[in-house]
Amino acid sequence: MDSLVVLVLCLSCLLLLSLWRQSSGRGKLPPGPTPLPVIGNILQIGIKDISKSLTNLSKVYGPVFTLYFGLKPIVVLHGYEAVKEALIDLGEEFSGRGIFPLAERANRGFGIVFSNGKKWKEIRRFSLMTLRNFGMGKRSIEDRVQEEARCLVEELRKTKASPCDPTFILGCAPCNVICSIIFHKRFDYKDQQFLNLMEKLNENIKILSSPWIQICNNFSPIIDYFPGTHNKLLKNVAFMKSYILEKVKEHQESMDMNNPQDFIDCFLMKMEKEKHNQPSEFTIESLENTAVDLFGAGTETTSTTLRYALLLLLKHPEVTAKVQEEIERVIGRNRSPCMQDRSHMPYTDAVVHEVQRYIDLLPTSLPHAVTCDIKFRNYLIPKGTTILISLTSVLHDNKEFPNPEMFDPHHFLDEGGNFKKSKYFMPFSAGKRICVGEALAGMELFLFLTSILQNFNLKSLVDPKNLDTTPVVNGFASVPPFYQLCFIPV
């Protein structure tokens, strides 16, 4: 009986604490739906499609509103004006990374994606500088992407125009580009180590996009005490870190300090320079996690976009025909596509942009946080508050993009057929937390897609009208449904 009384008292205290925290903070924060004790607004949000729920709530509470995930307040920004004001106009104040408990377990605050403060700034600055020195957006990395595009075309030829699921092959190409940047090595598509790495990356994007992960991140005790797919994700990350550590040891034994070959060499050189400046942010643990982040951000996002792009091109054969006509006119058949071609191919450029806009790969991006107490639109948001960005509300804005739910390359073309930029184009987020590999991803999408369409016609196994382009999961990332196609050599 005594234990029951204690339990009831504990629960009562928890409920009172929950109510007090919510009521004391709500006077400062933007308005929002009334949260339930302990669980907050979790029942009012469709976990399978958070973005749709945010759109519905914005119609009631406006472009800036507050939700509670458990006891934790989260300020939501919906629509271009609110997102721009926060991420661009007040970029420094909104540059923090929001709480992501599962990532905390995986990387302990290291790396480039989930770190904060001085650690994040130094690692991000170093990573950007190193990638630029190796030619991100310049010639040397373009050579690597072109080489991988040629290998991709050869792998597709091996399908002999038979029906195939493109998931694996389209994942190999961007993964190999990242391998060449980090390890100075590309792998054969049949290499077992490479296959294991690909498998872990593919599993992780599916797990991260599941409703279960949303629950884990908002009720963090689940991570330590409950079984579930989150444990598989943590094991996959541990596998990748151990693999990278092996490569780091190989580099330490063979590195030429006067001739760095890749990202690992550059990081080890930085560690050597910083060894007298303790404590340094440049450690082996930081290198492991930064490399894992580059793999995660640079492989599955690009391969998922490529997979979605081919599905949309199957669905819209008239678009595919126009792209192939432009390829034939500008590039021809006797040389590989290059980035200089893009400025002469406005329709193809528009298609690449429209694919990214339409699929809305990361509907709410990753959570941000404010780095200080900030007054925002007459609300006071306390330091450390998590900020949720609705990228969907920007990419699918119906004023900027008429009929935003329709796939239409003319969203990025003017009346004369010239490519038209849009400030609403934010597939990689915006501001200080914009994806480090934005330029690389854009290069890969253009070169891989043009190389495929230069060499193959795409054949659907069903009537294009019957192809479903609805994402199968739409949590962290929008993942396309399973499909097969035939690559018919031109």
Rank of each mutant, 00 (worst) to 15 (best):
2 D>E: 12
2 D>C: 15
5 V>A: 14
6 V>A: 15
6 V>T: 13
8 V>G: 11
8 V>L: 15
11 L>V: 12
13 C>S: 15
13 C>D: 00
14 L>C: 09
14 L>R: 02
25 G>W: 14
29 L>S: 03
30 P>D: 01
32 G>L: 00
34 T>E: 14
35 P>I: 01
40 G>V: 00
41 N>L: 00
41 N>I: 01
49 D>Y: 02
50 I>N: 06
50 I>C: 12
59 K>T: 15
60 V>E: 12
60 V>G: 07
63 P>H: 11
68 Y>K: 08
68 Y>C: 06
69 F>D: 04
70 G>E: 01
71 L>R: 14
72 K>G: 03
74 I>E: 00
85 E>A: 08
87 L>Y: 13
92 E>W: 09
93 E>D: 09
93 E>S: 13
96 G>E: 15
98 G>H: 07
99 I>E: 14
100 F>G: 11
100 F>L: 14
102 L>A: 07
103 A>Y: 09
104 E>D: 09
106 A>V: 13
112 I>E: 11
113 V>S: 15
117 G>E: 09
117 G>S: 09
118 K>V: 10
119 K>L: 10
121 K>L: 11
121 K>S: 14
123 I>S: 08
124 R>L: 03
126 F>C: 05
126 F>T: 05
129 M>P: 04
133 N>T: 07
138 K>F: 10
138 K>T: 10
142 E>G: 03
144 R>W: 10
146 Q>W: 04
152 L>H: 00
155 E>R: 03
156 L>S: 00
157 R>C: 09
158 K>V: 05
160 K>L: 07
160 K>E: 10
160 K>H: 10
162 S>R: 15
162 S>N: 11
165 D>G: 00
166 P>R: 01
172 C>A: 14
172 C>R: 04
173 A>G: 08
174 P>D: 03
175 C>P: 02
176 N>P: 01
178 I>V: 12
184 H>V: 04
185 K>W: 06
187 F>Y: 11
189 Y>V: 05
190 K>P: 04
190 K>G: 13
191 D>E: 07
191 D>A: 05
193 Q>N: 12
193 Q>L: 09
193 Q>D: 09
195 L>A: 12
195 L>P: 01
197 L>G: 00
198 M>K: 10
198 M>W: 06
198 M>N: 08
198 M>T: 09
200 K>E: 02
205 I>G: 12
206 K>Y: 11
206 K>L: 08
214 Q>R: 11
215 I>G: 03
216 C>S: 03
216 C>D: 02
219 F>W: 14
221 P>K: 07
221 P>M: 09
222 I>H: 05
228 G>Y: 06
229 T>L: 11
230 H>E: 04
236 N>K: 03
239 F>E: 13
241 K>T: 05
241 K>V: 04
243 Y>H: 06
243 Y>F: 15
247 K>W: 07
248 V>M: 07
254 S>A: 13
257 M>G: 12
259 N>L: 08
259 N>T: 12
260 P>S: 09
264 I>A: 06
268 L>H: 04
269 M>S: 15
270 K>Q: 11
271 M>T: 05
273 K>Q: 11
273 K>G: 09
274 E>H: 08
275 K>P: 09
277 N>R: 15
285 E>L: 06
285 E>H: 05
288 E>T: 15
289 N>C: 13
289 N>G: 10
290 T>P: 02
291 A>R: 00
292 V>F: 12
292 V>G: 06
294 L>F: 12
295 F>Y: 04
295 F>K: 00
296 G>M: 15
298 G>A: 14
300 E>R: 08
301 T>P: 11
302 T>P: 15
302 T>G: 11
304 T>Y: 14
304 T>M: 15
304 T>E: 06
306 L>K: 00
307 R>G: 03
307 R>M: 04
311 L>V: 05
312 L>A: 03
314 L>F: 01
314 L>G: 05
316 H>Q: 03
320 T>G: 08
320 T>V: 11
320 T>A: 15
321 A>T: 12
322 K>E: 08
323 V>M: 08
323 V>R: 00
325 E>R: 15
328 E>V: 14
329 R>A: 09
329 R>S: 12
332 G>W: 02
336 S>W: 08
337 P>Y: 01
338 C>N: 11
340 Q>N: 10
343 S>I: 14
344 H>A: 06
346 P>N: 05
355 V>P: 01
355 V>R: 00
363 P>Y: 04
364 T>K: 04
365 S>K: 03
366 L>H: 08
368 H>P: 01
372 C>K: 13
372 C>G: 09
374 I>L: 12
374 I>W: 10
374 I>H: 04
376 F>P: 01
376 F>R: 01
380 L>V: 12
382 P>V: 04
383 K>C: 08
385 T>A: 04
386 T>S: 08
387 I>T: 05
388 L>A: 06
389 I>A: 08
391 L>T: 09
394 V>G: 11
395 L>P: 12
396 H>R: 14
397 D>S: 11
397 D>T: 04
398 N>G: 12
398 N>M: 14
400 E>A: 10
404 P>Y: 06
406 M>G: 10
406 M>I: 12
407 F>E: 02
409 P>D: 00
412 F>Q: 01
416 G>R: 15
416 G>V: 14
422 S>F: 04
424 Y>T: 09
427 P>W: 06
429 S>G: 15
431 G>Q: 05
434 I>K: 11
437 G>Y: 08
442 G>P: 06
443 M>L: 06
444 E>T: 03
447 L>P: 00
448 F>E: 00
448 F>I: 04
449 L>W: 00
450 T>K: 00
458 L>I: 07
459 K>V: 06
460 S>L: 04
460 S>A: 15
462 V>C: 11
466 N>A: 13
467 L>R: 02
467 L>S: 02
467 L>Y: 05
468 D>V: 13
469 T>S: 05
469 T>G: 05
470 T>Q: 14
472 V>A: 09
475 G>W: 12
480 P>Q: 02
482 F>N: 15
483 Y>D: 01
485 L>S: 02
487 F>Q: 01
489 P>H: 03
